[in-house]
Structure formats: structure tokens, C-alpha cells
Design a binder for these strands. Structure first.
Lengths: 333, 333
DNA sequence: TTGTACGCGTTATCAA
DNA sequence: TTGATAACGCGTACAA
């Protein structure tokens, strides 16, 4: 991490000269070739790395806010592409009004992310996939950094979310409406408020209508859904409907059921969650709950930008709505 | 974009005081409550936004290189999650040795991305999905910014890629070996060297063995593959094998074929490309070409970091290999 | 609480 | 023709 001054000193030249050489303006400034090569060599030797900070500071009117997306290092990483797509599809991005930083963190270890406290890396953050512990830390830390929390409730920060409890109830209602008496819910092993609320809504509604529910757990992935279903196939009787809290898991289940020659939706009905594009092309097509990830992502960024320029309440709560998309996997033929 | 000095002036207080208040250190410093509120109000009014650059510059030993991932704003955005996963799975990231910036750009308009020339946003870049025009611009611009190009050849920059021509030949060989005489190749409408080379290799090998090939085009998505296949189903005879240059397209095709009651692999064999996880769970499971995205992503970042600290040749060429994963969609029963 | 030196690259002004 | 000097940008931290 040498500075330009160190280079200048080593070569025995002024910092201005060194700067010109390192920026390719040496010829315009008529710096001799020998000096140029000597400067460049010194830079290489010392491992010179220009400081963006110093540059930005000097070049006026160029600094834009840095927005960080804090994303957990777990299976849900696969959803980040939709999040990014939501941000990018909009004009805001194109105009270069902000820089987008991806800041991964380990689930449950948000407190160890020093950048949240130092305020050196970003001007504001969107926190996705926060676990209970992470959220607890956040609420108690009371950071004075502008923050938008995605898919969780919060007292101290702005939020963007859907009514996950209602989602759960809606799916239960659909199952009840379709006449199911014995259903299962497959739960991914991730700590998430949204998941917990969906479960809560689903179970409550089932209780009200006295439907029997089995709770199953698996990895948040196709493989997880496949494994859970394989296990389920070994016991009997099979439930007549399953709610998967992740489309990926439901896709894995379709594969396992096909192998076992169990027909969907005739023998068993499935509903997934998230409305991943792939669900339109599975065999059979997969009913799912539409989660407006792209819209929420865009809203999160816009909200954060507004908060940054004091144009929005830092406690704003944006609510989106989800709805069931009925496709073949939950329809009677 | 007010500065801390403007706030201090407005309130009639020193910059030091303003700094303390804005950083929540006011109480420790025994700044009066009135002063605190006045400073905070002024900050709000003026729309104060702390300059990260000034902060980083002052706080010693904290500046780490910023690496940008330049990603096109097109359908292939869906692949970015694998790219990110590749980076994140490794220790490098955890140690906070660099910051990761996502810099989208419009396909073919890399030249309009000013950040590449100003050097204000990042210390080095990984360029993914560059089109021919983008690459032409890059080669001729001869930027002195450290750059790693992903999945393209380059004279002037470091690269990380697989031998895409060989991939194409391999798939053709597999088809020939399986006895096909009439095949199709489905090409996504994206400008990519890798895609072009796969096509080239595939067509050449087919020519050598005098296999008839039909070239079809569609959107890089499940819907694109579905649409192409629907069209294909209207003509006859159907080819006995199809090579899809994207798994997403192949997944769409499976759906269309299922609807038309054409059996895979009995009536027609399919091979996709990329080895997306979903291909293990389609019905039938999808043969595909494994593209080591995660490994290449990790290698790209590590190579760039090495170049940044002069520990690697800025023209290094890293080659990875791909191979066919035979699953049900291309196997005889 | 205040004043001010400091970090580091850029660039305009000055000097030989 | 070749290079030096110093002001500048902005938040931080320490001495006063």
C-alpha cells in the first residue's frame, strides 16, 4: 500500500510528476521517458495501489451514495439474482445515482460485520434474510446508519415486506377449499421471520378448520425438497396436499414423486412459494405464491435513497401483497 | 451534498463539534443537548451526506481494493447468483480483503461506462458477458486498469475461460455416437464469444461426420426454449436430438415436448448447457455441459487480486475444462 | 468546545 | 523542455 509520495521519493521526483506518469498523462506533460519508466517500476516494486478515496475527494461533484446489500451466505443466495434484476430494471440505476455494494454476512453473525458500525464502506444498507439473532442485534444496536430491512418487521428501521401470515392462511384456505383433510407443510431450515409467519398463518387456519398438518423440514434447495419427499414416501398414508415454503424444494419434490410414480395433482397436490420462473415450466406446472421480489427490491433501493436525502421517514413500512398462482399442481383435472 | 463545514458554519459551531454530534460521540464530549439538536437539524435541512472518501482517507489502514463485477443488463443476470456464490464460498471474501461492487452495463455499451476510464469507482474489474463490440472497445481502449475478462479471449487483459469450441465438438460427438443423423442446435440471442465458439465447434464436428444440423434461435430463458420448441413441433420431421446452449432453454423445451406428448429421450434427446442445479430435478433429468461458473468466479477474483498486488501477469490466461454430464435426456433406456 | 494538522491524489501555478 | 510546489477536498482526532 505505497503512496504516490513514497514513489516520488524513491525515484527522486515530485509527487506531481509521479501522478502524471501513473495516469498516462506523462507525454502531455513532457515527462522524459526515462523518468516515466523509473516511476512505473517503482510503483510496481512498492505495490502501489491508488487510493480511490483520495481521488474521489479531489475530483469534485462525483461522489454518489454507496448502497450495500447485506446478503447471507446461505442457500438463499440463489434469490439474489431476482433482487438484482429488480434494481437494475429501473432507471435509477442507469443514471449512476448510487453505487451498489454486495456485502455478504454469515447468518446470525451480523454483529460481527464491522462495516455497519464504522460507516466506512457504505452510506446505507438493505438487509436481506436477517435471522432472529441478527434482527435482535440490529434493534438493540440502534445504528444511526440508514437501513432498510427486507422481509422483516422492525421498530427502529424502515421495512419492505409482504404479509407473510396472510400468505400462510391463503394457502391453507386453498387446501381446505380443495377438500384436503390431511396436509403437510415443508419448512426450509433457514431462520427467517417471513418463513415463521407463513407457518403460523398456515397452521392457525388449519387448526380452525381442523385439518391435520404434518410439519417436515429440509434444506432450502431442490435436493432438500427431494430428500424430504423421499422420506415422506416411505410412510403412509401420504398427505393429499403439501405446501412447500420454497419453489426449489417443490421442484425437488416433483422429481421424487415422479420417480415413485405418484401423480401430481391427481394423487397429491403441491403449492410452492416465491414464483420462480422455473415453476411455469415444470411437469406439471407448479402452483406457487407470487412473491414480488423484483418490486420489493426496487422499492427497497428507492426507499433507502429517499431516506438518505431526508425525503422519507426512516421508519417507513412498505407493504406488498402476495397471491396464489394456481397452476396444474393444485388443480383438479 | 452539504459538508460538515457548512453545517458548522450554519449552526455557528466548530467542525469538530459538528463531527462529534453527527457520529453520536456528543455525549462523551459533553456537547450541550441544544447544540446537538441544532446540528442535527442543520444536517437534515442541508441534506448532509457524509463523504466516505474523506472518512476512509482519515481512518488509517482501512482502505481495501474495490473489485467491480461488470454484468450486462440482460437475461443472463440469472447466472450471477452462481458467480457470487463462487466468490463467497471462499475464505478470501470473509477476510474483508476487498469490497465487491456490482456494476451493470448495457450489452454493447461498455464504452459508455465512464467508471472504466475515470478510475474513481473501483481498483479493478471483472468483465462478464462482454459482447463483440464491448470487447472491441476494450482491446482498443487499452485501459490501464487491471481487468479480468470472463469467458472471452483477449490480447490485452487477463482471462478466465473454458475451451468453448471443444465443448461444442464434444456435444456433437456425443450425438454422433448416439447414432443421430439429423440434429438441431438452439442458440440464445446473446452476443457472446463463448456461445459463438460452441456453435462453431458443434457445426464443424457435424460437418465432418456429415450430420444434418438445423440452427434455431430464441430468447435466453425457459420461455425462449419453450417457444422455439413449439415452432419446431409444427414442422416435420423432428430432429432426433437437440443441443440447447442454455439449460433454461432446455427446461422450457422439456415443458413444450411434454405438452405435445413427445417423449424424452425416446423420441428426442436433449443436451443443455451450464449445469444449473435445476437440471438434476427436471423430468426427465437433463443432460448438460458442466460449466464451472463458481470455480471460474473464484479464480477471476483471485487472479484480479493478484494482479492488483503485482503477483500475477496482467495477461494471464486461466483455462478451465467443461464436460458433458449424461443424464436421462440423452440416454437410451 | 474550538482550532488545526492530517491523509493522499490531482492540478494549477511557478521555476529552471 | 522538464519538473517542483502547494492548494485543495472533507471528515477525524488531538491539543489547547
Amino acid at each position: 500500500m505505497a503512496t504516490i509520495r513514497e514513489i516520488a521519493e524513491k525515484v527522486g521526483v515530485s509527487v506531481g510528476t509521479a501522478s502524471f506518469v501513473l495516469n498516462g498523462k506523462a507525454d502531455d506533460m513532457r515527462i522524459s521517458k526515462k523518468t516515466q519508466t523509473r516511476v512505473l517500476e517503482a510503483a510496481k516494486e512498492l505495490g502501489y495501489q491508488p487510493s480511490l478515496s483520495a481521488r474521489k475527494l479531489r475530483v469534485k461533484g462525483k461522489e454518489v451514495p454507496v448502497i450495500a446489500i447485506l446478503w447471507t451466505l446461505d442457500a438463499r443466495t440463489s434469490l439474489i439474482s431476482r433482487f438484482l434484476q429488480g434494481i437494475q430494471s429501473k432507471s435509477t440505476y442507469q443514471e449512476g445515482q448510487f453505487e451498489l455494494l454486495i456485502q455478504p454476512y454469515e447468518n446470525g453473525k451480523l454483529r460481527e460485520l464491522h462495516a455497519l458500525k464504522t460507516g466506512l464502506r457504505f452510506n446505507g444498507a438493505i438487509i436481506a434474510n436477517a435471522s432472529d439473532e441478527d434482527m435482535h442485534y440490529l434493534e438493540q444496536a440502534n445504528l444511526n446508519l440508514p437501513i432498510v430491512v427486507y422481509q422483516r418487521h422492525s421498530k427502529n428501521y424502515a421495512t419492505v415486506l409482504v404479509d407473510s401470515e396472510k400468505t400462510g392462511r391463503d394457502v391453507a384456505k386453498k387446501f381446505i377449499q380443495n377438500g384436503h383433510k390431511q396436509v403437510s407443510i415443508v419448512i426450509p431450515e433457514v431462520s427467517s421471520e417471513a418463513v415463521a409467519l407463513r407457518i403460523k398463518g398456515f397452521l392457525e387456519e388449519c387448526r380452525v378448520y381442523q385439518i391435520e398438518v404434518d410439519e417436515l423440514y429440509g434444506d432450502f434447495s431442490e435436493a432438500g425438497g427431494y430428500a424430504v419427499t423421499k422420506q415422506l414416501l416411505m410412510v403412509s398414508p401420504l398427505p393429499s396436499a403439501i405446501f412447500f415454503l420454497s419453489d426449489y424444494m417443490a421442484i425437488g419434490a416433483l422429481s421424487a414423486l415422479h420417480e415413485a410414480n405418484v401423480k401430481v395433482p391427481k394423487d397429491i397436490q403441491l403449492i410452492g412459494h416465491d414464483n420462480m420462473i422455473a415453476t411455469q415450466f415444470t411437469i406439471p406446472t407448479l402452483s406457487t405464491v407470487n412473491l414480488p421480489v423484483e418490486e420489493m427490491a426496487e422499492a427497497s433501493v428507492n426507499l433507502l435513497l429517499k431516506i438518505l436525502r431526508n425525503a422519507a421517514d426512516p421508519h417507513e413500512q412498505l407493504k406488498f401483497s402476495s397471491y396464489i398462482l394456481e397452476r396444474e399442481s393444485s388443480s383438479f383435472e
